[in-house]
Nucleic acid binder design. Structure first.
Lengths: 229, 229
DNA sequence: TTTGGAAATGTAAAATTCACACTTATAAAA
DNA sequence: TTTTATAAGTGTGAATTTTACATTTCCAAA
């Protein structure tokens, strides 16, 4: 039995998070303004290095918690970026993760410490290294998820209207959807509970509030059920 | 400007390849019997460590070439497996890649050197570490690719019959397909060229040979065209 | 009691997917 | 040369899914 692969090269492994939020109108991403080298003053994704006693999901959670104060967020590993000179300082690979968080729930003190800011997708500045490529990739994965089933309830308040949900999907997919078709589709998934509470803020009539039913969702996905928007 | 991230942990990064082949009947994977520690004598995926002057795609190609003698293979990065104790020798992360190769084209001398063997999916033995999980994941990605468009022409000879192509899809998807529906679908993609040559080996009538038209395919995919099987 | 405005709701046409069976071409055998 | 055996090749109608589209309902506020 051997005790190390001693002659092999070791590398630095970073984790960079594409953090999506939603403000009832537009899909946004959270970026930080670097006050450290390299590329001080430029915008980038929030990231950090993998520590030797944690796995990647753990690192992504840790990094996200640092910036937002939130734990237990939707996080999904995307891709390993590995171009040799992608980081000018030292050979570093980076695993991208995307996260979905409710903008209202994050700790603004923390984000201010990092000079972080929410940007709509179209207003987002150029990013350091290959971070812009990571964002593109994340958007396409997010769209894929959205057009293949329910996703993104993390981006809404616990109780929400169909209208809000539709707006979220429209923001993610970047296109307008038909109200009736959308509702029919969502109802066909059978993963929402209609409350008998109404939101009166948007109209005189008021619109019913719904909440996401984790149980039903779990049952469906466990049965190998495949959604499709 | 700083010159290193000196205080950060570095890790070993492996690349493991799930190598798919096809023998006109069944989908197979190529596994090696380890004659080195750890887990000598057990079956595993072909893998290797990332070197500091190469990117991951390069490493995957290198590893694949070592084992099969083939270059320029279809390779796709899958996922970074990072559980802290996944490798008992030393903290190692592994990025999985899946590859599609034509069984007939590989260098059998090389594979024999590695005591490598082709296994059908159902006959494959348990693998070391988390390699079985990697294989599962790869199969599901391959199935996804196959049910969303053309893939796997690498697994067939340059000229092939519709029957062969259908058998390949059936092997990948693990289900029988209707001949007419299959042909209609493939034709609707408009990515094959019908040759006026016939393969006489399988029937008295003989069946026309086709080849994959890289150009047409490229044009379609460039246009954001989305296939769907 | 009237009014304004978003919420809620159903249906028909179009497109896609699916299920299904007979004819044809040819080599080999008689 | 005729017959035979075998996989190749081919089209249609039913079922399902997706899309497009307009009117009525509810309620607070005036």
């Amino acid at each position: 039995m051997i005790h190390s692969y001693s002659s092999e090269d070791k590398v630095l492994l970073a984790v960079d998070c594409i953090i999506f939020g939603f403000d009832e109108e537009e899909l946004k991403i959270l970026l930080i303004k670097r006050d450290f080298e390299p590329e001080r003053g430029k915008w980038s994704l929030m990231g950090g290095f993998l520590k030797k006693d944690e796995n990647l999901d753990h690192a992504a959670n840790r990094i996200l918690h640092h910036l937002t104060g939130i734990n237990n967020v939707y996080l999904e590993q995307l891709y390993n970026f590995s171009k040799v000179d992608r980081d000018p300082v030292e050979r570093t690979l980076s695993v991208s993760y995307f996260a979905l968080i409710n903008i209202a729930e994050h700790n603004t003190e923390l984000t201010e410490n990092y000079s972080a800011k929410w940007f709509t997708l179209s207003e987002a500045p150029d990013l350091i290294f290959d971070h812009s490529k990571m964002v593109k990739h994340a958007i396409s994965r997010l769209r894929y998820r959205a057009s293949n089933g329910p996703i993104g309830f993390e981006l809404l308040p616990e109780k929400f209207t169909m209208r809000q949900l539709q707006k979220l999907y429209e923001a993610i997919l970047g296109e307008e959807l038909d109200k009736r078709n959308f509702i029919n589709k969502i109802n066909s998934f059978d993963i929402l509970v209609k409350l008998d509470e109404k939101d009166m803020s948007s109209s005189r009539k008021g619109s019913f509030l719904y909440k996401f039913d984790q149980e039903k969702y779990k049952r469906k996905t466990d049965d190998g059920f495949s959604f499709k928007l």
